[in-house]
């Protein structure tokens, strides 16, 4: 895949995750979500389980954004 397209698609998913934060918190509190093409394609309480699930489906992991969704009221400080 073209490197610029790869980065653009990944960035779009990241921005989408930011705009959809409230909805993600409602559906997947304290879970890891895998996002591809601005859709949640897998989720679990364990990041390892998410990756295992994606590998079973033969997903290209380089295209997938995986992030933790804190429950409402829980803020992540970096």
């Amino acid at each position: 895949m073209d490197e610029l397209k790869l980065l653009n698609d990944f960035e779009k998913s990241g921005f989408w995750a930011g705009t959809a934060q409230h909805e993600l918190q409602k559906q997947y509190p304290n879970e890891y979500v895998a996002i591809k093409d601005c859709h949640v394609i897998a989720h679990d309480k364990s990041s390892k389980n998410v990756i295992d699930l994606l590998e079973k489906r033969s997903e290209d992991l380089t295209l997938v954004l995986i992030q933790f969704v804190p429950e409402k009221g829980l803020q992540i400080l970096y």
Binding site: E3, L6, L7, F10, E11, G14, T62, L63, L65, Q67, Y78
Partner: peptide
């Protein structure tokens, strides 16, 4: 050595 997209937090 293949491209891996990463989201960094600038800190």
């Amino acid at each position: 050595n293949i491209p891996l997209p990463i989201r960094f937090i600038v800190d």
